[in-house]
Amino acid sequence: MRARWGLAAMAAAAVLAGGLANAADDALLPSGWTTTVRGAEGEDVVVGNLQVHVHGATASTRVDDLDGPLTSPGLFVAVDLSYATTDAWATPEVIVLIDGDGREYSDPSNLGLSGSTWLAGPDIWFRGDLLFEVPADAVTSSLTLEIRPETAVAVLPSTIGQIPLTVTRAEDPLEIGSDTLLAEGER
């Protein structure tokens, strides 16, 4: 009788362990290994190996191109920011906009404009604009800049940064330049 209780207990323990492992795998791994750093505009924010300083964002229906302004069916948003790394020269892998409904917007890089991420060095800061294109209703809700210096792999820890943006509406077309090196202490 004791042997049978022991067997039943072991079987139950095995089932329990399997169930727990499954639950952990489902729930924890994709999100539990990501640390989220929440920052604000106008201050240095450290996200993994990246140091970021966001100045602000501007939205307009038009962006300037060599041949004249381009008009979006929605809105172009230019995010003015500077960043450096902490350890070695690198380009952050992904920087996206997230709106109040949780929708994600990426770099419309096929327009042939600057406005994509650039290379920066350890404590060597560069300032530039990141260009996004969003539907008009996304800007009236809150827009957050989400920074993923390295694309997350589910089984390894990673860090992402979230910085809420204040967006200024402009009538003139946005001007997007290439990134420039900042002197020591400048942001």
Partner: peptide, 10 residues
């Protein structure tokens, strides 16, 4: 201090 600086940039 462990930082790595790339030659030939900027």
């Amino acid at each position: 201090d462990g930082r790595l600086f790339l030659a030939g940039r900027e």
